[in-house]
Design a protein around this nucleic acid. Structure first.
Lengths: 258, 258
DNA sequence: GGGAATAATAAGGTCAACCATAAGATTTAA
DNA sequence: TTAAATCTTATGGTTGACCTTATTATTCCC
């Protein structure tokens, strides 16, 4: 039924899904994400459109077709299941999970994927807090708000980290901004300006953020984060605004639309 | 230090190692194993020779250089560790292990390999009975004799299966010729002719063959093999002679040189 | 020693996925 | 409305790993 897609194809589809399933993504954005030139991305978009995986609206952007969405979810499922395995069982550093799982995902046959899911106990979220699509392609939505839309003064909880680049993940890891962590938005300069957060320990816990909590505990054992119940963190301009999703925690601000 | 080798390069190196570390392998043999034409293999051998991974003696064959041997062992290690994982933890069908592990091996970073080894408890043999090279490249030799050299009437124990093609492995699996199994060589026609074996249950057990035994038990639960303490098996001509290694069991025949 | 089998080389071709440069087309924001 | 920014298309190039067909070289065995 489903023909084997090339690694490159899978990367394009995954990028589309990560940038927002259903969204219209400008080709340039896709190119940037994948680290290729706009011209190359354009070529590839043509190929994928011919294969019926993408639908291209010139000068607007591309969306996943139904076939494309299914394929993309399959890639995302493999990616995130491997992240779980690497984290929970191989104890790989959090910041490296994405990169390492990424290479594995393209080499994973369906029967391995499903056996892995069973082995892992059918997890619903990856260590970055993102939902793992089900085998049938269904996808639990993330009830969060992008950090850039969180008003100053809000006390929020990190729900999921959307970033994928290892250096950005390292950056977050070093500052202990991880799923499950509670932060207060102290100051947010407009227009991609710097963002200041105050970090505090999370007090409640649920399934989604279990992994974040576990990670925090693991770090605490190494003396990271522990004994510093509150600290301030100032992100450089334009790096984190699109990276972290938050769930409202104690404030009651209505989520704005993306 | 070690530059990332391409998947193709790794396959050539692995094939060299599987055909015998240290051996001089004719290019045609390599081509056959890898399913490419002699011309293609020749081209590739040139490239690998230039990279210092192989040493090519025209009209004789190729050997691994020291660098090549190290790289090949690394590939073999990854391959066989994944086989262990897929078999022990994901319960993947024995015959499919090689094929599925093969795709994963090329996508596995060193730190994942080592973390996997720790997770698995540093196994010394893969489910096919082949030794897993250590992280430092050292390689436990197999104290066995290729089936084609086992004289008629010998009672031997399957030590390791050297075959890699899924269909051949399925063939063996269906007939329960697996590591740990004891067989009697009833008849062996000369010159790649058919080979008749009598299968009996293995009575003793050691570390090397533990996995085979476990598999046999697992099959027995499904009614395969159990209740048939002895059966005859006739292999088609020229298929198994090079595939299975045996350890002498109750007979005392001096191993012939390969 | 000669012929069969095997190995090597040469020449030319394909394919996917990239690249650069340059020239148009369209959208958006001043 | 016009210029800047973004997007698309065209052209031509590269790389790795394959392929076929054909020719030449070497080894091995009778």
């Amino acid at each position: 039924m489903t023909v084997q897609l090339s690694e490159s194809t899978e990367m394009y589809l995954k990028a589309m899904a990560e940038l927002g399933v259903g969204d219209v993504v400008p080709v340039g954005r896709l190119a940037g994400r994948l680290g290729v030139t706009n011209v190359s991305a354009n070529e590839m978009v043509h190929r994928l459109t011919e294969q019926g995986l993408l639908s291209h609206m010139p000068y607007k952007g591309v969306t996943l077709t139904e076939t494309g969405r299914t394929a993309a979810c399959s890639v995302l499922r493999r990616q995130r299941l491997w992240e779980c395995f690497l984290y929970d069982h191989l104890h790989i550093e959090w910041a490296k999970l994405y990169e390492l799982a990424c290479s594995l995902e393209h080499a994973t046959a369906p029967e391995v994927t499903e056996a892995l899911a069973v082995f892992l106990g059918d997890p619903k979220f990856c260590p970055r807090g993102n939902p793992i699509p089900a085998a049938d392609g269904s996808f639990a939505p993330l009830h969060g708000v992008p950090l850039r839309y969180v008003p100053m003064g809000s006390i929020v909880q990190v729900l999921a980290v959307n970033a994928t680049e290892t250096d950005v993940l390292k950056y977050l890891q070093e500052r202990d901004i991880l799923p499950g962590r509670e932060v207060t938005v102290v100051e947010a300069a407009p227009m991609e300006g710097p963002l200041t957060l105050r970090l505090g320990w999370k007090r409640r816990c649920d399934e989604t953020t279990r992994r974040g909590i576990e990670h925090t505990r693991r770090l605490a054992r190494f003396g990271i984060g522990d004994g510093r119940p509150e600290q301030r963190f100032r992100a450089p301009p334009g790096r984190l605004h699109f990276l972290v999703f938050f769930r409202y925690w104690e404030s009651a601000i209505s989520p704005m639309k993306r």
